[in-house]
Design a binder for these strands. Structure first.
Lengths: 144, 144
DNA sequence: TTCAATGCAAAAGTTTTGCACCTCT
DNA sequence: AGAGGTGCAAAACTTTTGCATTGAA
């Protein structure tokens, strides 16, 4: 009946209202929220949730492979319920983080293993630039 | 005469003993140190240096393009005096960070721009895995 | 001389931890 | 009933900031 509860149970995690809320939120957003973003988003509907629980839960999820933790260099972690390896694009103006796909990842990973001698387990490919909206805003700014 | 002093001056930065020490250290290490690593490494020879100065200096260096700041997900920033875009390999066991090169970066960056519509300015490509030494150590561990 | 850099201490921000209580299984 | 999860407060860590002093140009 409850798909998300089954997913948690399948990973050996107890099903709690907090975990359901956090995972459901992450599953249905594309915003790559931080722990605090998640906490604030869930406050209205889950008034007793605590930030510490959000952190602990995200760590549990990460260690069983239900979410991916990103370090885009903003001093905090951002979370993504899409766990398949994929690159991210970060807007240096509005801080948006968006997903995209690339067929080059496998090749790059092989090259990395070959050139370094490491066993490569995963990767984090992050691109930085201006999103279309911010580019337009800044070019209008230039025209003033 | 002093190549590094000239480099700083060329970027419009005042030349101070602290800046010379920090940049020289970064230039001649391959270890991708954190601010605190740098502070500790310079303490013996520069007993009055402060951690705040290290942070401020690294930020100055970064903003004029003398160093690159990395976020490999260990909760702090690591610094690299090689500013050309290149991927990094991180050992999840001993935390070593090593550089390597790839000709695929330009292609990947083009693909990123095309697929997302962003103006891409830079990227950070980080691979995680086991270095040869740690792999050997862990396989010996397995054999016990 | 002037303006920027330094160093100290305090503050800010994120994440972790200890512990008592609660609740899934 | 028992193992594990939650929530609170405190602590730990990294980084930033304010400000008086120092030092480079």
């Amino acid at each position: 009946m409850n798909e998300i509860a089954d997913l948690l149970r399948a990973k050996g995690l107890k099903v709690t209202p907090q975990r359901l809320a956090i995972f459901t939120f992450l599953r249905y957003t594309k915003s790559h929220p931080s722990a605090e973003d998640i906490y604030k988003a869930l406050m209205p509907t889950n008034p007793t949730i605590s930030l510490a629980t959000v952190y602990k839960t995200l760590d549990s999820f990460r260690s069983v492979g239900l979410v991916q933790e990103l370090s885009v260099g903003n001093g905090r972690s951002n979370y993504d319920a899409t766990v398949e390896s994929h690159p991210h694009m970060v807007c240096t103006c509005c801080n948006a983080i968006i997903d995209f796909d690339s067929d080059l990842i496998a090749t790059l990973r092989e090259e990395a293993a070959l050139k370094t001698g490491f066993d490569v387990a995963r990767e984090q490919l992050i691109f930085y630039g201006l999103c279309p909206a911010c580019r337009q805003a800044s070019s209008q700014q230039d025209a003033i």
